[in-house]
Simulated scan of single mutants.
Amino acid sequence: MNSLAKTLFLTATAAAITFSSIGAASANDWRYRGHNNNNDALVGGAVGLATGLIVGSAIANAPRYDEPRYIDPPYAYDDVPVYRAPPPRYYRPAPVRYYQPAPVRVGVEPWTPQWERYCSYRYRSFDPRSGTFIGNDGRSHFCVAN
């Protein structure tokens, strides 16, 4: 039973016991005093009702030892923001770009005097022994005369 039903049941029991004893005790007085009613029965009933309420609520709210009792902490964690993971993001894979080398144009044959003259005029950093020049990217490249 829940605690309200227990409280009501115990209150009604205490009130019934109180009223039955007051009624039996005051029956003789009422008959012999000539119906002089000083409201003793009502005061006794009120005292019994109050006693029943107090005892019933104490019994209904008594701790049960078969269940663990959890005590709330003295502070609340409502102020702490709740972390929520961001939704997953799906990335489209980057397209793979294949670069084809530039087609070789038939021009001046490498390692000939014309080729060496062309590359010397075209690139200031041309090295005739290796056939390379230093490009704007800082790397050495082989000279191709078109």
Rank of each mutant, 00 (worst) to 15 (best):
S3D: 07
L4T: 02
K6A: 03
T11V: 06
A14N: 07
A14C: 09
A15G: 03
T18Y: 08
S20C: 01
S21H: 05
A25D: 06
S26V: 03
A27M: 07
N28H: 14
D29A: 08
D29H: 05
D29N: 06
W30C: 05
W30E: 08
R31Y: 10
Y32C: 02
G34D: 08
G44I: 05
A50R: 04
T51V: 12
L53G: 05
I54F: 15
I54N: 09
G56C: 01
A58Y: 14
A58W: 14
N61R: 13
P63K: 02
Y65K: 07
E67M: 12
E67N: 06
Y70N: 04
Y70V: 06
D72Q: 13
A76G: 11
D78I: 04
D78T: 05
V80A: 15
V80C: 08
P81T: 00
P87V: 03
P93L: 11
V96F: 12
V96P: 03
P101D: 13
R105S: 03
E109W: 15
P110G: 08
W111P: 00
W111A: 07
W115S: 06
E116C: 05
R117G: 13
Y118K: 02
Y118Q: 00
R122S: 08
R122M: 06
Y123V: 00
R124G: 10
R129H: 11
S130A: 12
F133P: 04
I134W: 05
H141T: 01
F142T: 06
